[in-house]
């Protein structure tokens, strides 16, 4: 036993002498230090995350009035003139009060729990064939158009980084944690 411990100490000393010790983190695991630092500017250029509390929303503003033009130009061809949906392209408007019925209609207005989700998704992925073409003002405006059509915001409401996270979605409390396993044998 004594011999074993002596050998272990010898081994540790040899390894330490041959190679400078890597940096250790709090839990004792090795940190390799290979990554390049990411600067604040680089993060700002990459980071399009928008959190439900509004963190990450850009400057800019828009209302449904401007949003109607944005929608007609970039969205209506697929989602329909009034956001009613068309074929594979989902409806964006309507369906409130139908979730507990036998024919639920799931739209941004009836189903989505957070208003920031609409802004985020439009900015990151829409329009389908030309994502990224809309300005921040246009994304705020078309988000306002969708929310106003769903009668979630009052006519004329201007959305910006302060007002958008305060919008209360009708189905905000409609979601539950995963209870599975839930199926009896």
């Amino acid at each position: 036993m004594f011999r074993g411990r002596t050998f272990l100490l010898f081994l540790v000393a040899t390894v330490a002498a041959a190679d400078p010790a890597p940096q250790s983190s709090i839990d004792g695991a090795i940190r390799y230090g290979l990554g390049e630092p990411l600067t604040t500017d680089q993060i700002a250029a990459l980071n399009i995350s928008v959190l439900p509390n509004g963190e990450g929303l850009p400057e800019g503003k828009g209302s449904a009035r401007e949003g109607a033009t944005v929608y007609a130009t970039h969205c209506a061809a697929c989602h329909g003139d009034e956001g009613e949906g068309r074929g594979d392209f989902v409806a964006l408007v309507g369906g409130q009060g139908t979730l507990s019925s036998t024919q639920p209609v799931l739209t941004v207005g009836s189903y989505w729990p957070t208003a920031t989700t609409a802004f985020d998704y439009i900015r990151r992925a829409m329009p389908y064939t030309t994502p990224g073409v809309l300005t921040a003002d246009e994304v705020y405006a078309v988000t306002a158009w969708i929310l106003e059509k769903n009668q979630i915001i009052a006519p004329g409401t201007v959305l910006d980084r302060r007002t958008l996270p305060k919008v209360r979605m009708p189905n905000k409390d409609g979601f539950l944690p995963d209870p599975r396993p839930d199926v009896a044998r």
Binding site: S49, V50, L51, P52, L106, P113, T117, D120, Y121
Partner: peptide
């Protein structure tokens, strides 16, 4: 907190 992207929120 979760970001509530479309694919997790809806």
């Amino acid at each position: 907190q979760p970001m509530m992207t479309r694919d997790e929120a809806a």
